[in-house]
Design a protein around this nucleic acid. Structure first.
Length: 423
RNA sequence: GGAGAGGUGUCUGAGUGGUCGAAAGAGCACGCCUGGAAAGUGUGUAUACGCCAAAAGUGUAUCGAGGGUUCGAAUCCCUCCCUCUCCGCCA
């Protein structure tokens, strides 16, 4: 959520930045400013009226104590007449605040100055490409066929017990999952992230804090009986650990990592391009999250990007890094890098990670602050990234490493899988 | 699921209608003391919003949330949420 004070002081710039994101309702900006003007006026009236009544109440207290009953009664009458006025002003004020809030949550985060303008994924900027694109023989199989051939994943069983998009991993497929999770967590810890294990369901306040609500409730599974959402990413519980927290400056940066399953409804996105592991309702992911001093957040973003890249390098996967254009960026992000690996059998890039700086967009909702050098509270910056999401990594590993003998397990994973070949 | 207790500042914890943004202690920060430290001692120590060019200052709100009674509510009443304890059930 953008800060009203910022919008008020930087109207032109806000409009300019929103245009980069192709934001469709720029009028909201002025509506917010107007509502804020009204809010402040009303608050001043309310405060002044309350101050009068408070003073009268105090006076009555004194008069009562000194036994001046009659005089106290006359003040009571005066105070009573002000009451309706205060009540009305108070109702006006909360009404305005609600309106303001409602409009405010519709405004997306402002993109960083380096974000390219653009509407569609094709306009994302390729920052770099790394790793040789493997040339597979003509009879190379896509991962869903490999998964069947080597009995690694049983999609049909998943359909039976739950439904489409909930695969069952079997044999070395299950082992590979666990190996990747442990590898990713170990790498994150080496990079200074502290592991946390968090709930997989969150309440509404948490959903709001990281920006999933009220915007994207359709994407999350909702447990109606208990009013809880299944997490679409560990970002939600991990970042919300710091909701309503004021940190000391020397507690920054906070670096957490965690593995969780992620649940996404992915409503309306069925089709050939989501075959196999390409898009699932449930998948595993290791997430890295940081809470940092605003001065350092863009350096941190680069570090996080490099961390994700190092994982892909160690796994020997060819990848590219994209700087998302305004139109393809998420609602909450100021700058996002997507990492994609080349899926050799499908002949396409698959997104395996997304690393974002949210600046104060989340922390403003979370009330996540720190005490700065002047001793004042200031909103921290939050960032997160997948490091990494499993299914598409599994997909490319299987596809890219297939040989006539079987599938070669990357060297770095062997200590975790305890086997070198899937055959 | 049944029965009970309770939600106060960073924490412990007092506070049953006015002098309460809130005692006391702990913690923390700064100062004094000390060769240095501990102990001791002094001071300070919530957040948000408004007014003000800004600092200073000042006003308002906030004692789980919302509503009510009252001139006045942490304190009384109602509704909701949450936590804890015991019993039951169970990994």
């Amino acid at each position: 959520m953008l800060q009203v004070s910022y919008i008020r002081d930087n109207r032109e710039q806000v409009l300019e930045r929103l245009a980069v994101k192709n934001f469709k309702q720029p009028d909201l900006v002025d509506e917010v400013i107007q509502l804020d003007d009204k809010r402040r006026q009303t608050q001043t009236s309310f405060d002044n009226a309350s101050a009068e009544v408070n003073a009268a109440a105090k006076k009555i207290g004194e008069l009562m104590r000194t036994g001046k009953q009659v005089e106290a009664d006359t003040w009571k009458v005066i105070a009573a007449t002000r009451k309706d006025n205060i009540k009305e002003l108070g109702e006006q004020l909360t009404g305005i605040e609600d309106d303001l809030q409602q409009k405010l949550v519709l405004l997306p985060n402002l993109p960083h100055s380096s974000v390219p303008k653009g509407l569609a994924p094709e306009e994302n900027e390729v920052v770099l490409e790394n790793g040789a694109i493997p040339q597979l023989p003509a009879n190379a199989l896509p991962h869903w066929e490999l998964a069947a051939k080597y009995k690694l994943i049983d999609f049909e069983l998943g359909v039976k017990i739950t439904g489409a998009g909930f695969p069952v991993y079997t044999n070395k497929g299950a082992k590979l999952q666990r190996a990747l999770i442990n590898f990713f967590i170990d790498e994150a810890e080496k990079a200074g992230y502290k592991e946390v294990s968090v709930p997989l369901m969150v309440n509404e306040a948490s959903g709001f804090g990281t920006g999933q609500l009220p915007d994207k409730e359709g994407q999350m599974y909702f447990v109606t009986e208990d009013n809880l959402y299944l997490i679409p990413t560990a970002e939600v519980p991990i970042t919300n650990l710091y909701r309503d927290v004021i940190l000391k400056a020397d507690e920054l940066p906070i670096k957490n990592c965690g593995h969780t399953p992620c649940f996404r409804r992915e409503a309306g996105s069925y089709g050939a391009h989501v075959r196999g592991l390409n898009r699932l309702h449930q998948f595993d992911k290791v997430e890295i999250v940081q809470v940092v001093n605003p001065e350092t957040s863009y350096d941190v973003l680069e570090q996080m990007s490099l961390h994700v890249q190092s994982l892909l390098q160690k796994l020997g996967l060819p990848y590219r890094v994209l700087r998302l254009c305004g139109g393809d960026m998420g609602f909450t992000s100021a700058l996002t890098y997507d990492m994609e690996t080349w899926s050799a059998a499908q002949q396409r890039w698959l997104e395996v990670s997304s690393v974002s700086n949210f600046e104060t967009f989340q922390s403003n909702r979370l009330k996540l602050r720190f005490r700065n050098a002047e001793g004042k509270t200031q909103l921290a910056h939050t960032l997160n990234g997948s490091a990494l999401a499993l299914p598409r990594i599994v997909a490319t590993l299987l596809e890219n490493n297939q040989t006539e003998k079987g599938i070669k397990v990357p060297e770095v994973l062997v200590p975790y899988t305890k086997f070198e070949w899937i055959d």
